[in-house]
């Protein structure tokens, strides 16, 4: 999935992208980058991953004051109401259901950026 996301992001003009195998190394990267003064600006995470799942990475970020406001998109094959509710309650910025095409991902990304910029401006 990471290759697909990276290909779509590259096509959309996002070239400074880093990957992690699952939630645990991702969370460590997010914390390290923040501590180093070079924080990530956006997280796109699969829900189903071996090791730490995407929903748990989201919850970990929201529980960390330094990562709390980081825009976070979940990408998943879980499209049922209970999953959407769980992700919304956990504070996900938006949610893209697989399978999707590049335009859908682009639309969601732009929506999150707009929302995030707006909340910062306010």
């Amino acid at each position: 999935m990471r290759k697909i996301i990276k290909k779509v992001l590259t096509e959309l003009g996002y070239t400074n992208v880093e990957e992690a195998d699952d939630g645990k190394p991702a969370f460590e990267k997010l914390q390290s980058a923040k501590s180093a003064g070079n924080p990530f600006e956006f997280v796109i995470s699969d829900w189903n991953m071996p090791g730490m799942a995407g929903i748990d990475l989201l919850k970990a970020c929201k529980a960390d004051p330094s990562l709390k406001v980081l825009p976070f998109m979940l990408v998943t094959a879980e499209s049922e109401q209970k999953n959407i509710v769980e992700a919304a309650k956990a504070g996900v910025s938006d949610y893209v259901v697989k399978p999707f095409n590049a335009q859908t991902l682009k639309g969601k990304l732009e929506k999150i950026w707009t929302k995030h910029s707006g909340s910062h401006a306010a």
């Binding site: 999935m1 290759k3 697909i4 189903n48 998943t76 094959a77 879980e78 499209s79 049922e80 697989k98 399978p99």
Partner: peptide
Amino acid sequence: TDAVGEMTNQIYGTAKTTLNQMGYAFEM
């Protein structure tokens, strides 16, 4: 093999959503 796993995941996920709307309760 990653692509095969991902396609399997997505096809099952899509089917599961439809099936669960029909009254099944398959898990991911």
